[in-house]
Amino acid sequence: MMFDALFGYNYTRRKLLKKTNSTVMQEFLSNPFPDKKDLITNMDIVSIDFETTGLDIAKDKVISIGTVNIGHLAVNLISSSHQLIKTKKQLPESSVVIHQITDTQITDAMSIENALPILLKKLSGKVMLAHNAKIELGFINKMCQELYGSDFIIPVIDTQYLAKRSFERQNKVFKSNELRLFNLRKSYNMPAYKAHNALMDAIATAELFLAMVSKIASNKNACLRDFLP
C-alpha cells in the first residue's frame, strides 16, 4: 500500500499483474483503474458491504457480500446483488441478531472460492465504495493472498473517511458515533432503512455518497482525486 501512495494505484496494479500467476488475479488486474483526474460524474463505482462473523480479519469470515453499481451519479438497482457465503464456522449469535442471517440460510450459500472471482470481476477497472472500507479491503486482501497468493489493489472511496474529513475541515468536534452510516444518513435527510444486510447497507452507502457529492459546490467538475485520502 505504500507504493500506492507514492506511485499511484495503477502503478501498483501493473506491478502485481506482472508478478501473479493466478488467472483470476490476472483478469482482475488487467483492466486499468480510472485516473485520479477523471470526472466523478462519469465514473463507474461499485458500492460494497460485507457482513462478517466478526472484525478480526485474521480469524473471522465473510458471510455475505452486497454490491450495487453507481454510474452517472445514479444508483442502478438492476446491478444490485446479494451473495451469501458458506462458512464452516458456526455463526456467533451476535452476528445472527445483527444481520438476520441464520445457519439455515447459509446452506443456500456459495463457497468463497466461487464467490470471490465473481466479486473481483465486478470490481475490475472500477472504483470501490464502502463505509469504513478497511474492513472490506482487509478481508478481500486476505482472501486474495490465501487463494491466489497475491495482494489486492483498487482505488477506494470511503464515506466514513469523507465524513471525518469534512468534520475536521470545518474544525467541528464530533463523536465517533456520528460517523456511523445510520447517523450520517439522517443528517442528509435520508430514510432509515430498517433491514441490515449487506445489500441494503451497500445501497445506503451509495446513496450517502451521492449526497456527499451533491454537497460539493463544483460537483459537476469534481474528480476522483477529491474523494481519495
Binding site: 444508483v75 438497482l77 438492476i78 444490485s80
Partner: peptide, 13 residues
C-alpha cells in the same frame, strides 16, 4: 425495485 435507479438532489437544486 430492480428496475429503479436512485438519485439525490441537494436542497436548492
Amino acid at each position: 425495485p430492480k428496475k429503479l435507479t436512485i438519485r439525490y438532489f441537494r436542497k436548492g437544486s
